Computed example of a mutant assay.
Amino acid sequence: MTNSVTRAGGPRGGKRERLAAAAAQVFYERGVEKTTIADIARVAEVPVGNVYYYFKTKDQLIQAAIGAHDRTMREVIAILEQDEDPAERLKGLVRGWIEQRDLAAEYGCPSGTLATELDKRADGLDQELAAVMRGLLDWIETQFRTMGRDDARELAVALLAAYQGISLLTNTFRDPAMMEAEGRRLERWIDSLQL
């Protein structure tokens, strides 16, 4: 979806929020298994010992990272909702994805990458992230439905799938231009769906 942490200057806010944002960033950049609590503490600019005051386990940090993804998604949606036209909202979402093309080339989709990693675990955290991604899918469906589309759910799945697919390809080939080209195509596709 979008990066949960502003890379320039790192995460800001209280220690708990900084740790959650840092966890989202470091899990994205290094993966859950390769990330240590010390890595997260360093990015959050919090002493390692303080991490345990807020989060007792790495799994709690994963949950906090999922929460950071959810907050970021809600913030993005709130901004997009300022536009009255649902097609423009969707194109704004796509433009946001395009703006993240360099990060996608380096790491893939923040939520998609984490979802793939969590799917290999048997602790239910994958379902927590699925709920966040379902929220985005539902919002996209609402936009298509507001556009008068009876096939809104199918279109929402197609749009989100196109983004996940192009994120994977952009990352695989380390080619941000792929995301930009697909994003422009998706904008034209959204325009073609207006009744």
Rank of each mutant, 00 (worst) to 15 (best):
residue 195 L to K: 05
residue 24 A to S: 13
residue 55 F to T: 05
residue 184 R to N: 14
residue 147 M to W: 02
residue 129 L to G: 11
residue 28 Y to D: 11
residue 55 F to I: 07
residue 150 D to M: 07
residue 104 A to H: 15
residue 195 L to F: 03
residue 116 T to L: 15
residue 53 Y to N: 08
residue 22 A to G: 10
residue 32 V to K: 08
residue 25 Q to S: 12
residue 77 I to K: 02
residue 31 G to N: 10
residue 56 K to F: 08
residue 85 D to G: 06
residue 86 P to D: 04
residue 48 V to A: 14
residue 74 R to E: 09
residue 170 T to A: 12
residue 101 R to T: 02
residue 31 G to T: 11
residue 174 R to D: 12
residue 136 L to P: 03
residue 166 I to R: 03
residue 69 H to E: 15
residue 23 A to F: 13
residue 158 A to K: 09
residue 173 F to W: 12
residue 109 C to E: 09
residue 152 A to I: 02
residue 135 G to N: 04
residue 42 R to M: 11
residue 103 L to G: 05
residue 123 D to Y: 14
residue 15 K to P: 05
residue 55 F to R: 06
residue 191 D to T: 11
residue 160 L to S: 08
residue 21 A to G: 12
residue 51 V to D: 01
residue 85 D to C: 06
residue 124 G to H: 10
residue 96 G to W: 07
residue 167 S to Q: 09
residue 63 Q to A: 15
residue 139 W to P: 00
residue 62 I to T: 09
residue 64 A to C: 09
residue 26 V to S: 10
residue 58 K to Y: 15
residue 133 M to C: 07
residue 88 E to W: 01
residue 149 R to E: 00
residue 37 I to P: 03
residue 115 A to M: 14
residue 18 R to Y: 09
residue 154 E to N: 05
residue 184 R to Y: 11
residue 30 R to W: 10
residue 166 I to S: 04
residue 102 D to G: 13
residue 104 A to C: 13
residue 71 R to S: 05
residue 148 G to D: 01
residue 39 D to V: 13
residue 71 R to I: 04
residue 135 G to L: 01
residue 194 Q to N: 01
residue 31 G to C: 13
residue 13 G to W: 06
residue 148 G to P: 02
residue 10 G to D: 05
residue 170 T to R: 07
residue 153 R to Q: 14
residue 64 A to F: 08
residue 107 Y to P: 01
residue 99 E to A: 13
residue 168 L to F: 15
residue 135 G to I: 08
residue 183 G to A: 10
residue 95 R to K: 14
residue 51 V to Q: 04
residue 77 I to F: 03
residue 127 Q to I: 06
residue 100 Q to S: 11
residue 8 A to F: 13
residue 195 L to W: 00
residue 135 G to R: 06
residue 163 Y to G: 07
residue 98 I to E: 06
residue 69 H to P: 13
residue 89 R to L: 01
residue 190 I to S: 08
residue 140 I to D: 00
residue 195 L to P: 04
residue 50 N to L: 12
residue 145 R to N: 02
residue 127 Q to V: 04
residue 107 Y to H: 10
residue 67 G to C: 03
residue 140 I to H: 01
residue 158 A to G: 05
residue 162 A to E: 00
residue 108 G to S: 11
residue 101 R to M: 01
residue 78 A to D: 10
residue 77 I to W: 00
residue 115 A to S: 12
residue 10 G to S: 09
residue 22 A to C: 12
residue 87 A to I: 03
residue 127 Q to R: 12
residue 153 R to A: 14
residue 140 I to N: 01
residue 45 E to H: 15
residue 71 R to F: 01
residue 98 I to P: 03
residue 24 A to C: 10
